[in-house]
Every structure is written in structure tokens, then in C-alpha cells.
Nucleic acid binder design. Sequence first.
DNA 1: ACGCGATAAATCGTACATTGTTTATAGAAA
DNA 2: TTTCTATAAACAATGTACGATTTATCGCGT
Lengths: 236, 236
Amino acid sequence: MAETSDFKAEPPAGIDSIGASSEGASLYELIREDIIEGRLAANERLVVTDLARRHGTSTNPVREALQLLRGEGFVTFVANRGARVRPIDQDFVRDIYEIGVLIEPALTRWFVNMATVEDIAELERIQGLIEENNFADTYRHSELDTAFHTVMYQRHYNRHAAELWWKHREVLRAVSRRFNFTLARRAAILREHRELIALVKAGEADKAADLISRHVEGSGRHVLEQMRARNAARAG
Amino acid sequence: MAETSDFKAEPPAGIDSIGASSEGASLYELIREDIIEGRLAANERLVVTDLARRHGTSTNPVREALQLLRGEGFVTFVANRGARVRPIDQDFVRDIYEIGVLIEPALTRWFVNMATVEDIAELERIQGLIEENNFADTYRHSELDTAFHTVMYQRHYNRHAAELWWKHREVLRAVSRRFNFTLARRAAILREHRELIALVKAGEADKAADLISRHVEGSGRHVLEQMRARNAARAG
DNA sequence: ACGCGATAAATCGTACATTGTTTATAGAAA
DNA sequence: TTTCTATAAACAATGTACGATTTATCGCGT
């Protein structure tokens, strides 16, 4: 099949927990996916015995998976009361984007200074896939958008920053599952990516970093507006 | 007793994993402490049965603790081969400080804009403790130094940033266990903290952020020099 | 309607079985 | 003798099953 792996990236080595491994979707990945994809509600209780039954295993692997997710920050724990899904709400998203605005420009700067021709080719390939998609599938657009950034950040010029990006990335996936970017916003993303590639080729690190800063801030603002609008609609 | 809690801070709510809880040092905290304090060597194997015996429990709590530490990034895993201590080496430290330079100025800016009189009083209290210590105990000096920063960052104007700081903080503790800041450097820290308090009181957010930026960069450079020197000595 | 006690449910810890990995050993070839 | 390999035994990670303790739920009596 035309697997989605046409833009699959590897998680930073060392952090073996975050990121989808090639084949064996282990238990914690499945549970994390359930959280990201929104199949589990915010603050929903994660009952070990239920999850064990559902996944056809005993309780022990589930418990370990939940602890791992706790360490990653996707699950909260209370002693003797078990785990709950950590909600991905407005504050959560706003905070993530604020961090992105701080981190991504620096990552971009490093990338521009150290990018190989293969890296740039890969960027253009992703960009091609986005244009090919031509706004047809909003979810795929989002996936490709994060893939674009991932290409820039995955070779860890700074391992911690790369790990941060991988966590950030999971949240972005969660957001894109819940909210569709408008056509206008998607057009802006496309345009800014194109600009970015040009700047990368020209070796303009500072300008590229600036652009990314505005790019991330713009996306963040847009997502938050979407979230606010939905909340207002729900309340009204 | 004169508990060390004269500058104890709370970990950001929500992230229930990182940070020392008041009393019950649970298993994962103990193991993490062993890593931070350097009682476990870099890349050392973490054998579940050994740890269980050593801590007088069965294997299950140990396994969960290791998964939690994996999620936090202090332990690496290989399937069917178990866990190892993630080394806190030069790269690790350099990367952490680079992130610090990106994050801490923003955190400082937020703090200056939102600090209460109690916050400032707390800062001055810590500063008083540092001056009282008067370079006598280098380890205590480091602890107080991070405590100073923690006061500024712990009230999570941005929860993810606060979590980042808490992780950052653990690494700093690890570093301070392995390397002593020179007298000159500690004097500089003291001076810069004093400057900072003045800027906070004056509400000079930008200048404070600038100062912190240089402050963190300076500490990072200093620590890395220490590490390099020791490595060179070891090699020579 | 509001505590209160019994019952149900789920977490947490222990013990054990299974599977895969590492290490030690013995033998064969150079 | 030395080195490489095949094999077996020890070891440790992973998964299962179960008991104990804590928490949640429900019905009863006032």
C-alpha cells in the first residue's frame, strides 16, 4: 500500500520513548495515539484492567506504559487512584506555541548553517507533497506541515531541542485532529514554507529564523482563535 | 532540624513526576537521585532484580520507576536488554544550557511583569542565604543558585516552560555534584543576582532578560570549561 | 435529604512462568 | 598453544496470575 511513510522521520536517538517506531506499535504508543487522536477524552480515567482487556494483555505492560506516558507528560497520576488523560486544552496549546516561538528560530538557524543538499532536497520533496495535496485533505496538510519542520529539526544539532520538538510535534498532531486550519491559513503556511526554502538555499540564517518565528506565532494565534471560537460556540 | 527546606520549591502542578515531593521519596525519585548524584555511572546497566533487592521491594515497582525515568529522559531502554543510565556528558550539558539561553530570558521577562511583592521578598531571602553562606559550601551555593532561578520560574506563567525548567534544574544539580564552580564564577553569580533583583524591582523586563541571557551563557561556558579540563586531565 | 456501612472495583505489590540475551565452557581447526 | 565456534547453562527482561489494600459506589436507616 502507499504507506504514509512517504514522509516518515526517525525520533532523535537516545530518546527512545517518543516517536513512532517503524513497525511494532508498542502498547504505550497505542495509548498515546489514543490520546493524541482524541479517542480518549480529556481527564478521562485510564483504568489499567480495562486497557489490559482491550489490548489483550495482562495488566503489567499497561502499567508500565502509563508510567512512561506520565514521564512524557501526557498522563497524570494520583497515588492509589491511577491515571488520567492530561487534557490538551487552550492553556496547554498556548504554552506549547510559546515555547515553539522560543525554540524553533534557534533550531532553524542551526539548520540553515548545517544543512546538507540532501536535507534541502528532502524539504523540497515534502513541499512538493503539500502542493500536490493542494488543500484537499486538511489533516494530511497538517501532517505534512509538521513533517516539514521535522526535517529541519530531526538531525539533532541539539538533542534536547530535538526532543522538545518531538514532544511539540505530538501536541500539534493532537491539535490538527481537533481543529482544521482555514484555507487562508494553509495558503499562508505554504507560502512561508516556500520563502523558507529560498532562505535556506541562500544561507540566510537570520532571516530564516525570523520567518519561522512569525510562522510559528501565526499558526499558534490561528489555532487559539479556532479553539476559542469552538468554546464560545459550545457555551453560547 | 534545620531542614534544607529553607528554599524548597514545589514542582509545577500537573507534572507530578518531576520534582522532589515533600516526604515520601518514592522509588523513582530515589533512583533518579542516584543518577543525579552520580552514584550510578554513565551507561551503567540498571538491573531490575538488583534494584528490587537493594530497595527491598519486588520487581514491579522498579520496572514502573524505570519506565517513568525513561519518559523523563534520564534512562535509556533497549528492548529485551533493559535500562541504562543516560550519561550526563559534555554534549548533554551543552545542549541543556543552549536551551536555557533560549528559555530563561522569556521566563524572566514574564516574571518581571507579573512578580508579586512576596515573590521579590523570596528572591531577596534566597540571595541573603547565598551571601550568608559566603562561598563556604560550594554545593550549597549551587543549590541556592538554582533555587533563586526556581523562585522566578516556578509559578508557571507557562506550564511547559516551567516543566522544562524543572528538568533543566535536575541536570544542573547533577553538574554541580560533579564540578565546583570557581570562586570567581560564584562571585559573578552573586553579583548578577543582585543586579537582577534591582532590575526586577524597577520593572525592567528587557534588561532583566538580557542579564539572564548572559548569566546563563556564562554559567554554561564555565561548566563546559570545567568538564573539558577534567577530560583533558584524565586523557593526559 | 444526609450520613453510614457493606459491597464492588481498581490500584499496588508479590510471586511465578516464559522468552530472549549474555556468558562460560568445551571442542575443533590452525 | 591459540583462536574460533558451537553449545549449554546462567541470567535478566518481559508477561501472567493472584492476593492485599485503598478507593469508589450503592443501599439502608434515621
